Simulated assay, not measured.
Amino acid sequence: MPTSQDTVPALRRAVRILDLVRAASRPPLAADIAKQLDLPRSTAHGLLAVMVELELLDKNAAQGYRLGTRLLDWAGDVTEKRDLVAEFYHALETRPDLDSFTITLTMLDGADVVYLACRNSATVLGASFRVGMRLPAIFTATGNAMLAGMDDTSFDEWLAQHPVSGWPKPLTPNAIRSVATLVREMGEIRHRGYAVDDEQIHDGLWCFGSAVKDHSGHAVAGVGISLPQTELGRYGMEKLGERAVDLGRAVSFRLGYRGT
């Protein structure tokens, strides 16, 4: 009976190879890797060939190995997300006017939004948000804010990749159900500057969302301000939308965006 450490030996060997290559003072040869890790040469050559094919390693003219470009892409993506979350929380520190609301940060991932950060309020919402949660983008204020932040070509491509036949079942009677409704919603968001989830995710829960842009002006995330429907009259819908826009601009500014 194999132990848990022996269940995926090829993966463990690949990680050991990456660690060795990263620590080496010069790109090691296949023979060096096999010797230092005590691997059969055939095993080492097989692993190295696959890792080069997958761009986890690069092979130089002297037949030595160095870390591949795919690892750099992964590292950049992780760093970008960490920076985004950090700047989100930094922006919140200067916004005491948002302390009464649940504030969220999401990114678009295919047809869903993924929650990267949440600051829950003491107010009972009837629904809870947590990091890592996924929800259909078309039902969320942050998702629609990001979709509205796309140019027409990108939005058309998104629609082609996610046709209405594959849309999720509505979570409430208020949910968007057709392309025509979604397109009309995009126009309204672009006109007023923010998106509204009017109980599309949960009965009695409203959310106002705005896109977050990077230094190039690309919409990379969305911020949301959530509150119970019973509290709308206390603040006013337009004022809540403006707060969402202001927060989105603050995070965008911290990411280097200087546009209007």
Rank of each mutant, 00 (worst) to 15 (best):
A14C: 14
A23H: 08
A31Q: 12
A34D: 06
A34L: 05
S42V: 11
S42D: 14
E53H: 11
L56H: 02
K59D: 00
N60L: 08
A61S: 07
A62F: 07
R66M: 10
L67W: 02
L67D: 07
D77T: 07
L84I: 03
A91K: 10
A91V: 08
A91H: 04
R95F: 04
D99F: 04
F101Y: 14
T102G: 05
T106V: 02
T106R: 00
M107Q: 12
L108I: 00
D109H: 11
D109N: 08
Y115P: 00
R119A: 08
S121K: 10
S121M: 04
A122D: 14
V124H: 11
R130N: 03
L135G: 00
A137N: 02
G143C: 04
A145N: 02
D152N: 13
T153A: 13
S154C: 09
H162K: 06
S165N: 13
G166Y: 04
L171R: 14
A175K: 03
R177S: 14
R184K: 15
E199V: 02
E199R: 03
D203F: 06
K213C: 11
K213M: 12
D214C: 09
H218L: 13
A221K: 03
G224C: 06
I225Q: 05
Y235C: 02
R243P: 00
A244F: 07
V245H: 06
